[in-house]
Every structure is written in C-alpha cells, then in structure tokens.
C-alpha cells in the first residue's frame, strides 16, 4: 500500500473521524463534553486492554534477544530525543532554557493514546507486532525527564538564570514511573503474560470486542481537548514553536527508523517503535514538569504536545510511520 493510500485509509477510519468531530465541536465552541470520570474510565479500559493483549502475545512468543535490544534502544532514544529537541528549540525559537527543556522532555517521552491508535492502524492493515512493545512504551516514559532536567540546569547556568529543581529526582521519577496509566498498562501486561491464552479466552469479549468503539469515544474526547488546545495555539505559540510541533516528530521518527534498521523487529513492531519516538507526552510529563521546572510555561508545552503534535500524529504521522517501517523493517 502506498503512503497516500495509507494516509487516506487512516483519515477515513472511524477513530480519526471521531477525533475530528471532537476537534470541530471544540473549535465551534459546542457544549459537547465527555464527563471527566467517564474519560478516565475509558482511558483505564484502553490501558487494560492494550496491556493485557500485549502480555498474552509475549506469553505466546517468549522473550528473545531482540526484546532486550529494543528496550535498550528505546532508553537511548528517550534520552537522546530531548537533547536534539532542546538544541533545535534554542536555535530556532526564543524560548528560555527552562521552557525549551520542558518542551523537549515531552517529546522524549511518549503518548500512550497515540500508541494505542497506532496499534489499531497496524492491526487494521493485517500486520502483527511484538507484544513487548507495551513494555517499551512504559520504559520510554521517564528517561526524557532526566535529560530535560540536566539540559535545563546547564542551559540556565549559561543564561545566568537559576533553575534548580526543588524536587528530588528519585521522587519525581518514581512518581512518573508509577503514574496511574503506567501502572494500569504494565500491570495489565503482566497479568496478560501470566494468564496467557487461557486468560484471554476468559475475558476476550471484554478486552477485544468493545475496544474499537471505546477508542472512538475516547478519541472524541481527545478531539475536544485538542480542539481547545488548537484554539489556544495562536495565543501561546510563535510560528517557529508551532512548526517544531510538526517537524520534530518527523526527526524523532527518523532517528527511531535508524534504530529499526539494526533491530530485528516486524513491520508492525517497527511502526509502533517509530510512533512511540515521534509521540509527545501530555499526561505524565506535564505534571512532572510542574513539579521539577515550575518556571516553565505549561500553556506552551501542553498546547504543543496536545494541540499540535497529537492531532498531527493521529491523522498524518501514524500512516507515515507505518510506511517508513515498511521500508526499514520486515
């Protein structure tokens, strides 16, 4: 399938169309809302389902050297991406060292929802992927925060500004590593791994059948959130910062694609690793940044990751990453 056909297929999928509906409703200032508690429940369901399915896959396939190499590669990616992002932001925008470091931390970390959406695209194409990529998603949450804090400290010193984090790094990392979505994802993954196909046979009607419908509802809510972010984007983002939200995921994706050349991943697995590298966090890292770098402007990084990069990845990025994966893996 060509890149254009992939993009068209993705853009006309119910998931993306519901996302677009949510964004449209928010831009039109409609009163359409998903109650907060419902949105949280939907997110928990998605984590449970994707984690459990990944665990069952690993129970079937077992652990191999590729898994360990992929985990190592993902840690390197999560450390390295913020360094590149920070350098580009400092070179192309007028962001302070602290703001640039906070933004780059979001891009080194990952978006679980983008990952979940990508798994559906991969499955929709009849591709399979390595179940342990669920664990990779969890592994990639935290290293970027360490990178970003080091960058902020160094950059602020150079600027003559004090940006000492009032937070102890271990406490912060523990908080990110054990945030609700990671616990649910990794916990479900382990439960799926332990219970295997027998467990899947027991709860398949719950974790498989309603998955796509619930993903549509969740993405409708994400569309509403992203639409509100888009409304803000003109107020808080300069054109170079806005451009960063589009071009930087492509740079991260290219870096991940280079790693995929060296790893023995399937096309589906490579597409997901590339998607993880290209996605930007908007749940765990923003909260961590409010604690570690409170001087950084939250409107800036939330608008960029949620209002710019997330919609880009969901609509055009994922099909592009699948296409790249087809060229570098398999």
């Amino acid at each position: 399938m060509s890149g254009a056909e992939l993009a068209l297929q993705n853009l006309t999928s119910p998931m993306v169309l519901f996302f677009a509906l949510g964004a449209f409703a928010a831009l039109m200032r409609s009163d359409l809302t998903i109650p907060e508690a419902v949105a949280k429940t939907l997110a928990l369901y998605l984590m449970l389902s994707i984690g459990f399915k990944g665990g069952v896959e690993v129970a079937k396939s077992g652990i191999d050297a590729t898994m360990l190499l992929t985990i190592a590669a993902s840690i390197v990616l999560s450390f390295a991406i913020p360094v590149i992002g920070y350098a580009l932001l400092r070179a192309t925008t007028r962001l302070s060292a602290v703001d640039a470091a906070a933004v780059s931390a979001h891009y080194g970390s990952i978006s679980i929802v983008t990952f979940v959406a990508a798994t559906e695209v991969v499955r929709g194409l009849g591709l399979t992927f390595e179940g342990y990529l669920i664990a990779i998603a969890a592994v990639m949450e935290t290293p970027a925060i360490v990178s970003a804090l080091l960058l902020a400290r160094r950059g602020s010193k150079a600027d003559g500004v004090k940006a000492e984090s009032g937070e102890s790094l271990p406490a912060l990392l523990r908080e990110v590593a054990f945030n609700g979505s990671v616990v649910m994802l990794v916990g479900s993954f382990l439960i799926g791994w332990i219970s295997g196909e027998r467990g899947m046979a027991m709860i398949a009607p719950f974790v498989i059948d309603p998955f796509r419908g619930i993903l549509c509802l969740f993405l409708l809510d994400m569309g509403l959130v992203a639409g509100r972010g888009l409304r803000q984007s003109g107020k808080v983002l300069t054109p170079p910062a806005l451009a960063f939200g589009i071009y930087f995921p492509l740079i991260s994706a290219s870096l991940a694609a280079l790693f995929c050349l060296m790893l023995d991943l399937s096309v589906g697995g490579a597409a997901l690793l590339i998607t993880l590298a290209a996605s930007a966090s908007y749940i765990a890292v923003p909260a961590a940044m409010r604690l570690a770098l409170p001087e950084a402007n939250p409107a800036l990084y939330l608008t960029l990751s949620l209002g710019v990069t997330f919609p880009f990845n969901l609509t055009l990025g994922i099909p592009l990453y699948v296409w790249i994966a087809g060229a570098v893996a398999g």
């Binding site: 928010a26 809302t33 809510d221 994400m222 509403l224 959130v225 509100r228 107020k235 908007y282 749940i283 765990a284 923003p286 909260a287 940044m289 409010r290 939250p298 409107a299 939330l302 949620l306």
Partner: peptide, 15 residues
C-alpha cells in the same frame, strides 16, 4: 495573570 482557564476538558493534572 496568564489569562482565563477552566478545569473542563483537561487531559492532565498539570492544568
């Protein structure tokens, strides 16, 4: 000082 904000529709505790 940073303008108006609302709890509604936030994806994270950060806001």
């Amino acid at each position: 000082r940073g303008g108006s904000w609302t709890r509604e529709g936030l994806a994270t505790d950060a806001g």
